[in-house]
Simulated scan of single mutants.
Amino acid sequence: MDTNERLVARFGELMTYPQLAELLKRSITGLRYSMSKQDSEFSKELLVARVKLGHRVYFRTDQVAEIVDRGRA
């Protein structure tokens, strides 16, 4: 089972901020802060995976898996 399949089985197709923070072993506040900076390659890649549905923000699990596989997380 590859990373994408494991993450989709655990989190579903879309991940929330708390789920992403748990996966990356970061605090939610720290993750939000690094996402707001947009000056690192890591935050730029995560912004591509971001999806807004109304006021909620999600991240595409398949794209997060690609980032994790490349070792950027």
Score class of each variant (00 low, 15 high):
1 M>I: 13
2 D>I: 11
2 D>K: 07
3 T>E: 05
4 N>S: 08
4 N>R: 03
6 R>M: 12
7 L>T: 00
7 L>I: 05
8 V>W: 05
8 V>N: 13
9 A>D: 10
9 A>N: 11
9 A>W: 07
9 A>H: 14
10 R>M: 09
10 R>K: 15
11 F>A: 07
11 F>G: 07
12 G>C: 15
12 G>L: 12
12 G>P: 15
13 E>V: 09
14 L>D: 09
14 L>S: 14
16 T>P: 02
16 T>I: 12
17 Y>A: 13
18 P>K: 02
18 P>Y: 05
19 Q>S: 09
19 Q>T: 05
19 Q>V: 03
19 Q>A: 08
19 Q>K: 04
20 L>F: 08
22 E>V: 01
23 L>D: 01
23 L>Q: 04
23 L>C: 04
23 L>A: 02
24 L>P: 04
24 L>N: 02
24 L>K: 01
25 K>A: 14
25 K>G: 14
26 R>D: 06
26 R>W: 10
27 S>T: 10
28 I>G: 08
29 T>W: 11
29 T>E: 15
30 G>N: 03
32 R>V: 11
32 R>Y: 07
33 Y>P: 07
33 Y>T: 08
34 S>H: 11
34 S>A: 13
36 S>Y: 14
36 S>C: 13
37 K>A: 07
37 K>P: 01
37 K>F: 06
38 Q>W: 11
39 D>E: 15
42 F>E: 12
43 S>Y: 03
43 S>H: 04
43 S>I: 01
43 S>C: 02
44 K>G: 04
44 K>D: 06
45 E>I: 00
45 E>T: 00
45 E>H: 09
46 L>Y: 05
47 L>G: 07
47 L>A: 09
47 L>N: 15
47 L>E: 11
48 V>A: 10
49 A>C: 06
49 A>K: 04
49 A>E: 01
49 A>L: 08
50 R>C: 05
50 R>Q: 14
51 V>F: 13
52 K>F: 13
52 K>M: 08
53 L>E: 12
54 G>Q: 06
55 H>R: 15
57 V>T: 11
57 V>D: 10
57 V>G: 06
57 V>Y: 15
58 Y>K: 12
58 Y>T: 08
58 Y>F: 14
58 Y>I: 12
59 F>K: 03
60 R>F: 15
60 R>P: 06
61 T>V: 00
61 T>C: 04
61 T>F: 01
61 T>S: 05
62 D>P: 03
62 D>T: 02
62 D>M: 06
63 Q>G: 07
63 Q>S: 02
64 V>E: 01
65 A>Y: 02
65 A>S: 03
65 A>G: 05
65 A>F: 04
66 E>M: 00
66 E>A: 03
66 E>I: 00
67 I>G: 00
67 I>C: 09
68 V>C: 02
68 V>I: 04
69 D>W: 04
69 D>I: 00
69 D>Q: 03
69 D>A: 10
69 D>P: 05
69 D>R: 04
70 R>Y: 10
70 R>F: 10
71 G>C: 01
71 G>K: 02
71 G>D: 00
71 G>A: 04
72 R>M: 07
72 R>N: 08
72 R>C: 06
73 A>W: 09
73 A>L: 09
73 A>P: 05
